[in-house]
Design a protein around this nucleic acid. Structure first.
Length: 730
DNA sequence: AGCACGCCGACT
DNA sequence: GTCGGCGTGCTC
């Protein structure tokens, strides 16, 4: 009788779609499925997840298996989480190990928990009993014998650290190690929250009942800005916590503000832990462990929080579910909203998608009954939505290089007079999108990308918005040598600020864009400071649309409402509708009605008409009909194949080879379009060519794509990226 | 993803 | 005659 093979299959963070087998050393306990292990890979080692028993057999040709290095002292990933990772990997065509890494991405996992040393009273009497030693014991006695940190004790007793060391050595002091990690503040689901309106109370009761019933369910929670969606889904979170389960609230990163955390604290008595890119390593580790142990009950986080190792997740909220920031666009490509629904299904949890302007996908899913729908009709606190008025730019009589129409300027002046804030919205960073030589027509382009350089006058640089390349603005044209002929063409927020300063010299003008701060935290702080009254005229890109309330803001001016409609993107109309709705929703609070002036060259455009009429249902219905007719998402499915490489000819060659394998896709019911040069045909020196696969619902799109990509594997110098459900078509 | 092995140009 | 470019393939 030979002993059973002591092997495990380990999912490793490699771009290889199968787990690797390892031997478990004799005398070790077999690590359970889901355990985190360190395993040798090539020269080094990596942290992986035990995915099952090894499938190795002597005849497989592998001479020997290398042994696992160590089993990390962390909770194994639960079956529900592993199931989620496997299905997410399958759906997004991502190697399992790379997907699993998202769930093990806390630094220092497996390290012993951080400890601090403390001194308490010892068993022995000090010998000799010097006055200094007596003072030490007295200082401890004053604390009731509670252990103290060495520095603290030494200071309290007025002795040096050496005295403590000597006392500890002879047993006059006891040395203990305490966990340094703070415990998680208990959150009280029974604490009464803010009073709810009847509509809120009804929606909250429905969600509570769904959470209480247990099991999977999905709800689209729809309500205009200020309708109190947050209070409603916090009730659902309270229910999950009351059941002893955990809850996760996902927000677009920029919406994770102190204001939001304070609202949660208002409901539960303390702030919940947060998870986002600016959380420092030690705190990430503490939270990862706290979540795995079930000690952290409610987590508020950005999209990557979706991969935390919850022990018993009862609820996921995806706030601002329509937000494009939920799509992860590099590395592992996934849509956090869709993955949240998948995770909820795997966990037997409720998922709530909340938005004032739902995505068409979620709207359709609610229409077909795949999701339930809850509407919060009126604006909480009796304020009304802002009045939306178009300003026809064709008749506005704007002077050259001016972007603020007289009507808008007049409205801003009135707000300044009244001591109220105005917001001018323009979704363009920098000073001007194009810098042109008026003598020879030369314009500035990025040396590494197919993109114009954007002038950033505050920084005095020309910047590439694709790769970050920056160069100083020259005094003379580099092509023809003409000086003083370089002309900034078109508007950016910085230029708008210049115009605003000229129009209203006494006003405090502030620019809010992602260029203004070097971390997400700093940016949030900046938004908050301005919202609290730090400026009279706020000029911002789309970051002002997200999440934050501007209590004293009564006017919104949309500088160029047509901007988003210019690219032929599938979702251009939807995005424009959502963005303008969200931005205009910033105007007006409880007692001050708001006004939104929408500057456009095409007020008769159906999208503009829908925005102005505020008729969201009609807009969505029309958009849905158009997408259905085109077989576009969510009625059909798309996947993009992007080939990229430094050698343009090789990239095209690889793209044509893939296109030649189209019959493989056609046979499975998937149509292939392309290849075409990507709209941004070169980024960071890499040429990019796109293909688009389109399938009706119900067709095994991923399966077909896998076979197709395998049949025409591009050479190593060309990278193939498969993007299932692409959101961006660049 | 890293990393090593493997065939063709500028050097002590 | 070698050192080194990165193109190709592997990692249990």
């Amino acid at each position: 009788m030979s002993a059973p093979p002591r092997t495990v299959a380990v999912a490793l963070p490699l771009p290889v779609d199968h787990p690797f087998d390892y031997a478990v050393p004799e005398g070790w306990d077999m690590p359970p499925e889901g355990a985190l292990v360190e395993a040798p890979v090539g020269k080094g080692s990596a942290i992986g997840v035990v995915w099952g028993p090894g499938r190795w057999a002597p005849q497989d040709g592998v001479a020997r298996l290398r042994p696992v290095v160590r089993v990390l002292d962390e909770a194994p990933l639960a079956p529900a989480l592993r199931g989620f990772l496997a299905r997410a990997a399958d759906y997004t065509l991502t190697p399992l190990g790379l997907m699993a890494r998202l769930a093990t991405r806390a630094p220092g996992l497996g390290d012993p928990p951080p400890v601090r040393e403390v001194y308490g009273p010892g068993d022995a009497a000090p010998d000799p009993a010097t006055p200094a030693r007596a003072r030490v014991l007295a200082a401890l006695a004053e604390q009731g014998g509670a252990p103290m940190a060495p520095t603290e004790l030494a200071r309290a007793a007025g002795v040096s650290a050496g005295v403590l060391k000597a006392m500890a050595a002879q047993g006059a002091l006891s040395r203990r190690r305490l966990a340094r990690d703070r415990p998680f503040a208990p959150l009280d689901p029974m604490r009464p929250g803010r009073p709810l309106s009847p509509a809120q109370a009804g929606a909250a009761a429905t969600l509570r009942a769904k959470v209480a019933a247990g099991g999977y369910g999905a709800t689209l929670l729809r309500g205009v800005t200020g309708s109190g969606k947050t209070e409603v889904y916090l009730e659902a979170a309270a229910e999950a916590l009351g059941q002893g389960r955990q809850a996760l609230i996902l927000l677009p990163e920029i919406a994770l503000t102190a204001g939001f955390l304070a609202r949660v604290a208002g409901r539960f008595g303390d702030e919940p832990p947060q998870w986002h890119s600016d959380v420092p390593p030690a705190e990430r580790r503490r939270l990862w462990r706290g979540v795995a142990r079930g000690e952290a009950r409610l987590v508020v986080g950005a999209r990557s929080a979706l991969f935390l190792p919850f022990r018993d997740l009862g609820l996921i909220v995806v706030d601002e579910e329509h937000d494009a920031a939920y799509k992860q666009e590099d590395g592992v490509l996934y849509h956090a909203r869709d993955m949240a629904v998948l995770r909820a299904a795997c966990e037997g949890a409720q998922v709530v998608l909340a938005s004032a302007t739902p995505s068409l996908e979620s709207w359709v899913n609610a229409g077909t009954g795949k999701y339930d729908r809850l509407d919060l009709p009126e604006r909480f606190g009796a304020a009304s939505l802002p009045r939306l008025v178009a300003v026809d730019l064709r008749r506005a009589g704007l002077k050259r290089d001016r972007w603020i129409s007289p009507a808008l300027a007049q409205a801003v002046a009135e707000r300044l007079e009244a001591g109220e804030q105005s917001l001018l919205f323009l979704n363009r960073r920098g000073y001007a999108p194009l810098t042109l030589c008026r003598a020879c027509g030369h314009f500035f382009e990025c040396p590494d990308c197919d993109a114009r350089l954007v002038e950033h006058r505050f920084r005095g640089r020309l910047v590439c918005h694709q790769c970050g390349h920056a160069e100083p603005v020259p005094a003379a044209c580099p092509a023809c040598g003409a000086s003083d002929r370089l002309h900034a063409t078109g508007p950016g927020v910085e230029r708008l600020a210049e115009e605003a300063a000229a129009l209203w010299p006494a006003a405090r003008v502030a620019v809010l864009s992602s260029d203004g701060a070097d971390s997400a935290v700093a940016l949030r702080a900046q938004v908050e400071a301005i919202a609290e009254g730090g400026a009279d005229v706020v000029i911002g890109t789309q970051i002002v649309a997200k999440g934050h309330n501007f209590p004293n803001l009564t006017l919104v001016g949309v500088i160029d409402a047509d901007l988003g409609l210019q690219n032929g993107d599938l979702r251009a109309a939807e995005r424009t509708f959502q963005l303008i709705r969200q931005v205009s929703g910033r105007a007006g609070r409880a007692d001050k009605p708001g006004l939104a002036l929408v500057q456009t060259v095409a007020p008769e455009h159906p999208v503009m008409q829908a925005i102005l009429a505020g008729d969201e249902a009609a807009f969505l219905a029309r958009e849905a009909a158009a997408r259905r007719a085109a077989g576009a998402p969510p009625f059909g499915r798309l996947a993009a194949a992007i080939l990229s490489g430094a050698d343009e000819a090789k990239v095209w060659e690889a793209a044509k080879a893939l296109a030649a394998q189209a019959p493989l896709l056609e046979a499975a019911g998937v149509r292939l379009f392309g290849p075409v040069a990507a709209p941004v045909s070169r980024i960071r020196g890499r040429w990019r060519v796109r293909l688009l696969a389109k399938a009706p619902r119900g067709v095994g799109l991923q399966e077909a794509l896998r076979a197709w990509a395998a049949a025409a594997r591009p050479p190593a110098s060309v990278r193939l990226t498969l993007d299932v459900d692409p959101q961006s078509f660049l």
